[in-house]
Measured scan of single mutants.
Amino acid sequence: NEEPLPEGWEIRYTREGVRYFVDHNTRTTTFKDPRNGKS
């Protein structure tokens, strides 16, 4: 039961299956979860 991502964020996966987060607001990507700060 995960809380929803902030507005404008999306979860994607690399070809290796590593989860990362896309911030469409700033057009950046990060491996850090914007909901809780954990990677």
Rank of each mutant, 00 (worst) to 15 (best):
V22D: 01
P4R: 09
E2K: 09
E2F: 11
T29S: 11
E2W: 11
V22F: 15
N25V: 09
R12D: 03
D23N: 10
V18Q: 11
R19M: 13
E7I: 11
W9Y: 04
P34T: 00
K32T: 13
V18M: 11
P4E: 10
W9T: 01
T26L: 05
P34Q: 01
R12I: 06
T26K: 06
S39D: 15
T29M: 15
T26P: 00
D33G: 01
D23L: 03
V22M: 09
E7N: 12
V18A: 09
R15I: 11
L5G: 02
G37H: 12
F21G: 00
N36Q: 12
G8T: 02
E3H: 10
E3N: 11
F21I: 00
V18I: 14
E2I: 10
E7P: 14
P6M: 04
L5P: 15
K32Y: 13
R19P: 12
N25K: 10
T14F: 02
R19W: 05
R15W: 10
E16S: 15
D23T: 01
D33S: 01
R12M: 10
Y13W: 12
D23Q: 05
N25D: 05
P6R: 06
P6G: 05
R19S: 06
R35D: 02
K32D: 15
I11K: 06
G37I: 11
N1L: 13
L5V: 06
R12P: 00
P34F: 01
E2V: 10
T14Q: 02
P6E: 04
E10N: 05
D33L: 01
P6T: 03
F31K: 07
P34G: 01
Y13N: 03
N1T: 13
E7A: 14
Y20S: 01
S39F: 14
L5Q: 02
E16C: 15
N36V: 13
N25W: 07
E10I: 07
R12A: 09
F31L: 13
D33P: 04
R19K: 11
E2N: 11
R15H: 11
F21E: 00
F31C: 14
L5A: 02
F21T: 01
V22P: 00
E2R: 09
D33H: 03
T29D: 05
R19C: 11
L5R: 01
G37Q: 10
R12S: 06
R27W: 08
R19E: 07
E10Q: 08
R27D: 13
E3Y: 09
F21V: 00
R35I: 03
E16P: 05
L5H: 02
G37L: 10
F31T: 10
P4K: 09
N25C: 12
T26R: 06
K38F: 15
H24T: 10
E16T: 15
Y20D: 00
E2G: 10
E7T: 12
T14I: 03
D23S: 05
G37M: 09
R15K: 12
N1I: 13
F21L: 01
G8L: 04
P6F: 03
F31H: 08
R19D: 01
R27S: 13
Y20G: 00
W9E: 00
F31A: 07
T26Y: 04
E2T: 10
R35V: 03
D33R: 02
R19L: 10
S39P: 15
N36F: 10
N1C: 14
R35E: 02
R27H: 14
G17M: 06
E2Q: 11
E10A: 08
T14G: 05
K32L: 13
F21K: 00
I11Q: 08
E16M: 14
I11W: 04
W9H: 00
K38G: 14
P6A: 05
K38M: 15
R35K: 02
N25Y: 09
N25T: 09
P34Y: 01
G8C: 07
D33V: 01
V18S: 07
G17Q: 05
F21H: 00
P34S: 01
E7M: 13
G8D: 03
P34N: 00
V18R: 14
P4W: 07
T29A: 13
S39W: 14
Y13I: 07
N25H: 08
W9G: 00
F21P: 00
E16Y: 14
V18P: 01
G8A: 04
T26H: 06
E7H: 13
R35N: 03
D23H: 09
T30K: 03
D23I: 02
F21A: 00
G37N: 13
T28P: 00
E7F: 12
P6Y: 04
T30M: 04
T30D: 03
P6L: 04
N36S: 13
F21M: 00
R35Q: 02
R15P: 12
F21D: 00
N25L: 09
E7W: 10
R15E: 10
T14A: 02
G37K: 10
E16V: 09
W9L: 01
R27Q: 14
Y20N: 01
N36D: 14
R35H: 02
R12N: 06
T28Q: 09
N25M: 08
P6S: 04
V22T: 04
R12Q: 08
V18N: 07
D23Y: 05
K38V: 15
E16F: 15
G8M: 04
W9R: 00
K38A: 15
I11Y: 05
G8I: 02
Y13H: 08
D23E: 05
L5S: 02
P6W: 04
G17I: 01
T30I: 04
G8V: 02
R19N: 04
T28H: 08
Y20P: 00
